[in-house]
Design a protein around this nucleic acid. Structure first.
Lengths: 223, 223
DNA sequence: GGCATGAAAAATGTCACCAAGATCGTCCGA
DNA sequence: TCGGACGATCTTGGTGACATTTTTCATGCC
């Protein structure tokens, strides 16, 4: 019994990696928290090498920061970093939305994005933070996948959207009132196959998100 | 004699990482080549953990692909992947150029970008592939640094510009005639502080690059 | 000649050990 | 009592060795 069944499916580092990302969404880990290698080794029951590899990957994606000879910590975004990230996401999401709209006719793309939007618009889903987060991720992932730009798909997870979602989850106002009509505008434009309109809608949404975040108190950000 | 002096400066993984990227530009490694961990361990005289970490980082950046239980290989771009990458670079470089133009007045930004452009325009530099590659990298890095968007700076190296540069270096026509006037247009717009113009110039340059690559024969791409 | 079997190769996963740096508490002296 | 020097301890960085698993390839059988 050297390893669990889950471990076999995708290598031990993958287990640790997904475990940490998932733990982030579940609140098990919070920004700023220390991640001691020995603890992770015990929690996930894998070798330290696997833990280190998982941490390396997370650090490469910017989700955790590794300080020399100090514990790795869940990264916490400062106000400036958040602003930078939002500005970048505006560009990337606009690009993704445009590509998606241009390819809505291909394959069963229309069906996929419609389903993703439907579950996002479900009031039942909106009540549960975890379910809503998943639905939103699915919507964005579908949008990116529709674009069929392999490089964009590769790069998108390497932005720190997850961090934004988690760090500001307490401030529900950020994406409360505005979000659903924004998502609807993006979906409509994609569904109509209007690339330019989709890009604008996506950029507007992110820009509004940025404005809302700008209004948050300093306490929401890393020192 | 547990470790070399070079290794001490930035950790063993960094040595391997830079060694491979450098070897790529020098022709020591070519796209498609296998990278056996044991060989790298011997060549760079570091532990296997360091080799694996370096490979992980390179894989995260997309420079090498790691197949489970098979050798890591230098990634080779297919025609479709190249097209995707160019489309993405067009967006990102346009964004970077716009930011740079908007901040040309700050600090000694104007001086830095002017120097970077000067060494790029030096006919002496243009004769040497390696020197020119370095000057071009410096120009782009300066442009990104001027923008002062931390997230963009973090994400840019994770695109596979290096791969494009190396894979199509044999086909000099790609960026021969058009390149210098394009770079001049970008530089001028940045120097004038005209964000919109800089973005357009940068996007036009990348688009032209893409058009040239589109005309290359199938032999230039991965099967 | 095609296919199955088994050996070798190569990668993954784990553990143990030592080195280096950082943190933190304690102790001593002014 | 305060403050700095010192050292114990914690944690990561790096290496080597060994077992396990998977792939690959050559050999032999039908």
């Amino acid at each position: 019994m050297p390893k669990t069944l889950a471990a076999k499916s995708d290598g031990s580092p993958g287990v640790v990696y997904r475990g940490i990302v998932d733990g982030l969404y579940r609140g098990r880990y919070v920004p700023g928290q220390r991640l001691v290698e020995a603890d992770l080794t015990r929690d996930f029951e894998v070798g330290r090498g696997s833990v280190r590899e998982a941490l390396s990957r997370l650090a490469a994606e910017g989700l955790v920061s590794m300080n020399l000879h100090r514990s790795a910590t869940i990264r916490s975004l400062s106000r400036a970093e958040t602003r930078d990230l939002v500005a970048l996401l505006e560009v990337l999401n606009g690009f993704a939305a445009r590509l998606a709209a241009e390819r809505v006719e291909e394959g069963n793309n229309r069906k996929l994005i419609t389903e993703a939007y439907a579950s996002l618009a479900d009031v039942e889903v909106q009540r549960d933070f975890l379910r809503f987060a998943r639905a939103r991720n699915t919507f964005y992932r579908t949008m990116v996948a529709m674009g069929a730009n392999h490089e964009l798909a590769r790069l998108m997870p390497r932005t720190n959207v997850d961090l934004i979602r988690v760090q500001f989850r307490a401030y529900a106002t950020v994406d409360d009132d505005l979000r659903m009509e924004d998502y609807r505008a993006i979906y409509d434009a994609i569904n109509e196959g209007q690339g330019r309109k989709a890009e604008t809608a996506a950029r507007n949404h992110i820009r509004r998100l940025g404005d809302a975040i700008d209004k948050l108190p300093d306490g929401a950000f890393a020192g």
